[in-house]
Amino acid sequence: MEIADLITPAAVIPNLRATSKKQALQEMAKRAAELTGLQERGVFDVLLERERLGTTGVGNGIAIPHGKLASLDRLYGLFARLERPIGFESIDEQPVDLIFLLLAPESAGADHLKALARVSRLLRDKGVCEKLRGSDSADALYALLTESPASRAA
């Protein structure tokens, strides 16, 4: 599973403006609705429902909200770089400025988990996060996200 299988350049928001966790999730749900043709409300509710299990703010300014939707045809990823960091009830209490949202079809099961693991691994990389924070164009962010691990190591 590669990041490129999850995300398109159109799903990258280089300068998201939000003042709260709720607003950030709302904005991203809106963009997700545009991409997938689903109801914005439905996406937002699924994300909020998942947050009740525990925050997806995994620390170090990263959040990976996710959820499953019955009417989805495949996995969808969205990435947002926030203009200003926001409180996200993160596990380390640090404000969040990088959000990777992942939506999966109800039937995805193992693929959903594999994709989550892949995104989580990518955003644990300090170097990658620094570069993401330093870029402000959708294309550059998309390139950074989908760079294969091999080319990053080189």
Binding site: R52, L53, G54, V58, A108, G109, L116
Partner: peptide, 18 residues
Amino acid sequence: DFPIDPKAPMEVMASAYG
């Protein structure tokens, strides 16, 4: 990868991740 609320019901866990 993710923090989980220890008080969350297993039922919700199960349906969120299959």
